[in-house]
Design a binder for these strands. Structure first.
Length: 595
RNA sequence: GGUUCCGUAGCUCAAUUGGAUAGAGCAACUGCCUUCUAAGCAGUAGGUUCCGCGUUCGAGUCGCGGCGGAAUCACCA
């Protein structure tokens, strides 16, 4: 950013003086120079030929010459076809470093007064969290952090789908087969216990359906009218009537689940500022739909069901209330959205982190909110992410191919422990510190793996082979941080005076490369926020670490005899470590001082 | 069938939003620990960017037509 501004300025100036053309500084685009050419920044001359009236090469030559002679910014240049490659002068690089070093919070913006809400995690209370939730949560959490880094105040919220037929199913099965089991009595985590009964329901249901179809009942009818299914529906009715016993059971079982979820969230390292429950919002949604019906925004069918007609927007008709008056998914979401803007009237943006399978749903939801006359409907955004596939294909709870969140995290942590012990570099850590380290590394690997891929894209996760601790991974970046930390510890022992920085030094090419990346950091943070895209940060921090490692391998730091050089390289390393730590923080990943 | 998204090295992913000879990691192979952490560094090999046509100085990227895959189109959530 620092460099771009200066370059844009002098380029605009040169265009004016050389060709007498007014070009807005902001509109001048620079791109990184391909590494087979000399230089770091490239200016493409093609768009400006109309001003110069000369060939691409000549235009490049003229501008390059001007910059070299008239400004101290570049020390050399070369022209290949229409590409003007600029080599920034040492002096400029050092100015840049000084600027970064002295910046209060380099790359991050101070509060700008904007308020946004990010929803991530929308679990059902009938089964445990799985790999899909991990991508969802890491993504939403990271996007929140990135928005915060850009100065926004972020409300991190969760919507808990705590009502409906699915939880009734678990409740019925627990009543029938549970024999009073509780998380305490069994030692099973609450969400797992409830999930167990959800599976039990499914099993029982299948059996009953089979019995019925054997008697000649059609499959569809059998599925609908199997005794246990009727029980579940009855239970849902009783719940809506607030039947004491059912309500109590519902509260109890949900509390088990929340307790279990919380453990999982703590391990994941994600937090929420506020929780929304669908049981609190579905009635509000219903009210709004009835209001809309009065105003004839919606219409009623003969059987009493309420619909919205979106055919004028190229979409379909969509049901909002069933013929028996009960609400559907959409009804709840209408209520939730309204409640949120009531709770936080100042929010500029409501971001839903939800899988791309629900794109249609959100398109419809936002249109309905618009029809209801809420101006803020424009501010709702569906942050849609792709599904996580397994080598065996899609995850399906019924077929037992779901990767459980707790299991996966534990596996990652165990692998990290194994790896660390093999390398044997942490004898000085206490047992507690070592345990913490395994969590940092295991989760770092997992988060980085899930976040480095563009969120919009469907991705493949191979539990056996996908998670590596080498190469383009979380631990690689963490390692770079730990390495620099070790270096800095040593430097401290040497008592190097780093208070006075005199930049009377000669830069190594690898240092220029790193500086060029450090210069990019603010851009990346901004871009990641604009696109709600953490993968930009993940790719960036990998490049930075990679590039620093090259420097580390080629340039000795502590054995520098010249004081200024020594001092510079230590400070330089510290700035890189700080930037790595900040970038990883945006991904929700911690970095260890030793590993 | 309609709509939307996707197709890049053996595998997993990039490619600065239309820029130069399409880049990383993994897997394979070759070097580098008596000097700051080798979870590292350097190197070799690997490509008709699914196919075809078009748009222009320039296409993995934009348009059209195919082929292949996914999601969605519920009185499920």
């Amino acid at each position: 950013m620092f460099l771009e501004k200066k370059l844009q300025q002098v380029l605009s100036q040169s265009l004016k003086e050389l060709f007498d053309s007014e070009v807005d500084e902001e509109s001048i685009k620079l791109q990184p120079t391909r590494k087979e050419f000399e230089g770091t920044h490239t200016f493409v001359t093609f768009p400006y030929l109309k001003f110069s009236g000369k060939s691409p090469e000549q235009t490049g030559q003229l501008i390059g010459e001007y910059l070299k002679d008239r400004t101290g910014l570049i020390e050399n240049y070369n022209v290949v076809k229409g590409f003007l490659n600029l080599q920034i002068s040492q002096k400029t690089w050092l100015e840049l470093f000084q600027f970064i070093y002295e910046s209060e919070d380099y790359g991050f913006s101070p509060p700008n007064g904007e308020e946004v809400m990010v929803e991530y995690s929308s679990p059902n209370t009938n089964k445990p969290l799985h790999l899909g939730h991990l991508r969802n949560n890491f993504l939403g959490y990271s996007v929140s952090r990135i928005l915060e880094a850009n100065g926004c105040k972020v409300h991190k919220v969760q919507i808990i789908n705590d009502r409906g037929i699915h939880i009734s199913k678990s409740m019925v099965a627990w009543q029938k087969f549970g024999k009073g089991e509780t998380p305490d009595s069994t030692g099973i985590k609450g969400d797992k216990l409830v999930g167990k009964y959800y599976v039990k329901f499914d099993k029982q249901h299948k059996q009953e359906v089979a019995t019925l179809t054997d008697k000649g009942v059609s499959l569809e009818k059998a599925q609908r009218e199997a005794p246990i299914m009727l029980d579940a529906q009855e239970m849902l009715r009783k719940w809506e009537e607030k039947d004491q016993q059912v309500y109590q059971l519902w509260k109890t079982m949900n509390s088990w689940v929340y307790h279990g979820f919380n453990k999982t969230y703590v391990q994941m390292g994600v937090v929420f500022d506020k929780l929304y429950y669908e049981s609190d919002t579905y009635l509000l949604g219903k009210e709004e739909v009835l209001k809309g019906l009065k105003k004839e925004t919606f219409f009623k069918k003969e059987d009493g069901s309420v619909w919205v007609d979106l055919t004028d927007k190229g979409l379909d008709r969509k049901i909002l209330l069933r013929s028996d008056g009960t609400s559907v998914y959409m009804t709840q979401d209408i209520g939730t959205a309204i409640l949120r803007f009531k709770d936080f009237p100042k929010i500029k943006n409501l971001i839903y982190t939800v899988g791309n399978e629900q794109e249609y749903h959100f398109k419809v939801l936002f249109l309905i909110l618009q029809k209801l006359g809420f101006s803020w409907a424009q501010e709702c955004y569906h942050l849609s992410y792709g599904m996580v596939d397994l080598p065996s294909g899609k995850m399906k709870s019924r077929e037992g191919t779901v990767v459980d969140a707790d299991d996966l995290m534990k596996e990652m942590i165990d692998t990290a422990e194994e790896h660390t012990k093999e390398l044997g570099k942490i004898e000085t850590l206490t047992e507690g510190q070592a345990k913490d380290l395994y969590v940092i590394l295991g989760l770092g690997a997992l988060k980085f793996f899930l976040l480095k891929v563009d969120a919009k894209k469907r991705m493949l996760f191979d539990p056996q082979a996908s998670i590596d601790f080498h190469g383009d991974t979380g631990p690689f970046v963490q390692y770079t941080f730990a390495r620099i930390s070790a270096l800095l510890r040593r430097a401290e022992e040497m008592e190097v005076n780093s208070n006075t920085l005199t930049f009377n030094v000669i830069l190594h090419p690898t240092e220029v490369e790193v500086l060029s990346l450090l210069n990019e950091f603010p851009n990346k943070v901004k871009l990641a926020a604009e696109e709600y895209n953490p993968s930009i940060i993940a790719q960036y921090v990998y490049d930075l670490a990679k590039s620093y490692n090259r420097f580390y391998a080629e340039v000795p730091v502590l054995s520098q005899s010249d004081h200024d050089m020594l001092n510079f390289k230590i400070t330089f390393s510290r700035v890189v470590a700080q930037t790595i730590s900040k970038a990883m923080g945006l991904l929700g990943i911690k970095v260890p001082k030793q590993m």
